[in-house]
Amino acid sequence: MKEAMDLIGCLCIHGFTGDPWEVEPICQELQKLDGWLVYSPVLPGHGKELSALKGATYEEWVYTVEVAFEELQKRCTDVYVIGFSMGGMLATYIAARYSVKKLVLLNAAAYYFNPKQFLKDMIAAVRYHFTGNQEEDQLIDLYEKKFRETPFAALAQFLQLVQKTKPYASKIRVPTLIIQGEMDGLVPMKSAYHLYDIIESDEKELIAMKRSRHMIFHGYEAEEVINQIKDFLLESSQERKKTT
């Protein structure tokens, strides 16, 4: 077992209205590695009962990930950060302000709402209610619960967080991997392109997953996404191909 200060830390941040289940597959894989300390906090107001979001603020979400990162930093030699959806925007904030070793952004919500794919998803939802059939990765019941139970005040906090954190991406200098699902109805490819363009790192890469929806770790290409992340985190900067 490695000494405490030889540990490698990884902070995994879930998305808006979500919980650590969203990033659980990558957390479980990284926890198998010797000497890794992986942590995925529940953001205030999030979890199973979305009504608790009514009183939550974006400042609390920012504070939670700051404290989590600082705690990992005390225990680990290096700390990586992985952010999904809104968690990706929180991750850009952390990477711009703290000593992050590497950054991974997954369907990060610098921009949100993909009208073309969203319409397809709505048609699929109507079909599901008539036939009971859906593709394994569509998760229609989950999204309908989110739309039905999320307080409007929480949505306003989400919008504020995106606007407050978006400028920090231009201050990122660490190696960054951006992965975006092309079939994501909530976050468009535009978001990934924007982040790729403004991140100032000399080592950055953008991967588009053709069959992936928003819940990228719970879809058809989840294994490939996990492997891409592990390769990026475990390989040295000399081994990984640079994309500029």
Score class of each variant (00 low, 15 high):
Gly185Tyr: 09
Val100Pro: 04
Gln117His: 10
Tyr193Asn: 10
Asn114Tyr: 11
Asn114Gly: 07
Leu142Ile: 13
Cys27Thr: 15
Asp231Ser: 12
Val65Arg: 01
Phe16Cys: 08
Glu223Gly: 04
Thr244Arg: 10
Glu223Pro: 00
Ile13Gly: 07
Glu49Phe: 09
Ser51Gln: 15
Leu37His: 12
Gln160Glu: 14
Phe118Gly: 10
Asp231Asn: 14
Lys204Asn: 02
Tyr58Cys: 10
Gly83Asp: 03
Gln228Cys: 08
Lys166Asp: 04
Leu233Asn: 00
Leu142Val: 13
Ser40Leu: 01
Ser51Leu: 12
Val79Met: 04
Gln160Val: 02
Met89Ser: 04
Val23Asn: 06
Asp202Ile: 00
Thr165Ser: 09
Gln163Leu: 09
Ser212Val: 06
Gln157Arg: 05
Leu50Ser: 08
Ser201Ala: 14
Thr131Tyr: 06
Thr17Lys: 07
Ser170Met: 06
Val187Arg: 04
Glu24His: 11
Val162Asn: 05
His14Tyr: 07
Leu103Met: 08
Leu105Gly: 09
Ile82His: 04
Lys48Gln: 13
Asp184Val: 07
Leu105Asn: 11
Arg148Ala: 13
Leu106Ser: 11
Thr17Asn: 11
Lys2Phe: 13
Lys48Val: 13
Lys54Phe: 03
Leu11Asn: 10
Gly35Ile: 10
Arg213His: 03
Ile82Ala: 07
Ser51Pro: 00
Leu50Phe: 09
Tyr98Lys: 12
Leu195Ser: 05
Asn227Pro: 00
Met122Ser: 14
Ile13His: 07
Asn133Ile: 11
Cys27Ser: 12
Glu71His: 06
His218Val: 00
Asn227Val: 00
Arg75Thr: 09
Tyr168Pro: 02
Pro20Ala: 11
Met215Asn: 06
Leu161Lys: 00
Ala192Arg: 02
Gly181Trp: 03
Val187Gln: 06
Cys27Arg: 12
Ile82Phe: 05
Asp141Ser: 13
Gln238Ser: 12
Thr176Leu: 10
Thr165Asn: 06
Val79Glu: 03
Val62Trp: 00
Lys2Met: 14
Val104Pro: 05
Ser51Trp: 07
Asp6Ser: 15
Ile179Met: 14
Tyr58Asn: 07
Ala154Pro: 09
Arg127Asn: 15
Ala153Thr: 14
Ser237Gly: 09
Leu90Asn: 02
Thr92Phe: 06
Ala68Asn: 04
Glu203Trp: 06
Gln157Cys: 08
Ile13Ser: 07
Ala91Met: 04
Glu235Ser: 11
Cys76Ile: 05
Gly47Gln: 06
Pro41Lys: 00
Asp121Ser: 15
Glu239Val: 02
Met215His: 01
Arg75Leu: 12
Asn107Ile: 08
Gln228Lys: 11
Ile94Thr: 06
Asp141Trp: 08
Ile94Gln: 01
His46Gly: 03
Phe158Tyr: 13
Met5Val: 13
Met5Glu: 15
Met122Cys: 15
Met1Tyr: 10
Leu142Glu: 13
Ser237Ala: 05
Lys190Asp: 15
Asp231Thr: 11
